[in-house]
Design a protein around this nucleic acid. Structure first.
Lengths: 202, 202
DNA sequence: TTTTGCATTAACCATTTGGTTAAACCTGAT
DNA sequence: ATCAGGTTTAACCAAATGGTTAATGCAAAA
């Protein structure tokens, strides 16, 4: 059947368009064109723009959180966890470079609605618990040296921000895509070393 | 006269609305309402939405770059410059928390147009030169320990990203505004210490 | 072969939205 | 007082846009 195929094609098209343009900038017509279907069919499968958007947004958000969680499944020392996280998260973002900017800007567009949506889903529970336990672990291990929340922010920032600022950086410094890929690949080691050195005990 | 007053009021309203909603999400009517004037008057002063937007965007972008530059005017050691930058940039962002997300998402919405715009302006020259000389300074001083570009990214990331991710972080962890302010205030010292430690020579 | 029911489309519709126009409104100069 | 200039507005317009509807296609069941 074409059933699932069509629905999937719509979702892929919607994902591309929403990620590129944001909710306000996205056009139902463009999604339909990209999916190779009639615009009315969008409304047949997903009643409205907002519902379609919700589905896409939650999927992307979930992926972002899963990427975060999966670094923590193994029972290891906090240092190993940290390094696993840095490796894995940068790799994830190299595959999906548009995800973080999309998620972050759409949340700040309407934080209250986002909070409401979160409450109904279970994604939140997992991610939230893991973040808090990570911060608590950091605190036990490095509490005397550094505020754990700041350490957490530092790590996340160094992993995520380069992807968010890439278009701007690229415009200013004219880095081509090949160079960028190498830069992000070497970045894993650099960030790990940077953090490790900053946390060295003496 | 009301002349400059009206024009200024339009610009302030436009800035607020564009920063909150982005180009696509902004409505000329909302800008007019916020400025307390008739919508036609917007077109009287600025011919179109795009022109008004261009003015606002370039102003905000310029402010962001000036903030970056002003930390470097003094002829000091690279370490002092770095610390001045961290202090000053976090302070700037505390006053204008929406600036970075606005700039970054609008650039990535249409990087080519942004590059075109940049070429015609002089803002670029200054900022670009300073960034490159900063990276070159970093390289001379810490080149053996760390790739200078990554170090530059690290510092910028740790300063800027918290403001970009605040709405998301706030939604997940329920940090109130007072706590946030304290957190960002203490962050200046934390980031400086973190960077200093990571760069210590032995 | 006919029927049934979902999938798909062309044509439409109502609203929103950026933009225009012609008239009204000031204010300072004559 | 009236004239001339820019400023401001109410009313309007055309295009874009999300959404609907009624008809068509089409495959499996009868």
């Amino acid at each position: 059947m074409e059933e699932k195929d069509t629905e999937l094609q719509i979702k892929e098209a919607a994902r591309t368009v929403f990620m590129k343009r944001g909710y306000a900038g996205a056009r139902m017509q463009e999604i339909a064109d990209l999916a190779g279907i009639n615009k009315a069919l969008l409304h047949y499968y997903y009643r409205s723009k907002e519902r379609l958007y919700d589905v896409i947004f939650m999927e992307v958000f979930q992926e972002l959180m899963e990427g975060l969680e999966s670094a923590f499944v193994e029972e290891d020392s906090i240092k190993v966890k940290m390094e696993a996280f840095i490796d894995l998260y940068i790799s994830t973002l190299m595959k999906n470079p548009h995800m973080p900017l999309f998620v972050v800007s759409e949340i700040s567009r309407d934080p209250d609605t986002f909070i409401e949506k979160l409450k109904t889903k279970e994604i939140f529970e997992g991610a939230n618990k893991i973040v808090l336990s990570f911060i608590s672990d950091l605190n036990n291990e490095y509490g005397e040296q550094l505020n754990a929340i700041h350490l957490f922010m530092n790590i996340i920032s160094m992993c995520v921000f380069p992807f968010i600022s890439k278009p701007m950086l690229g415009a200013i410094t004219q880095i081509d895509d090949a160079t960028w890929k190498i830069l992000m690949e070497t970045r894993k080691e650099e960030v790990k070393r940077f953090v490790a050195k900053a946390l060295e005990k003496r």
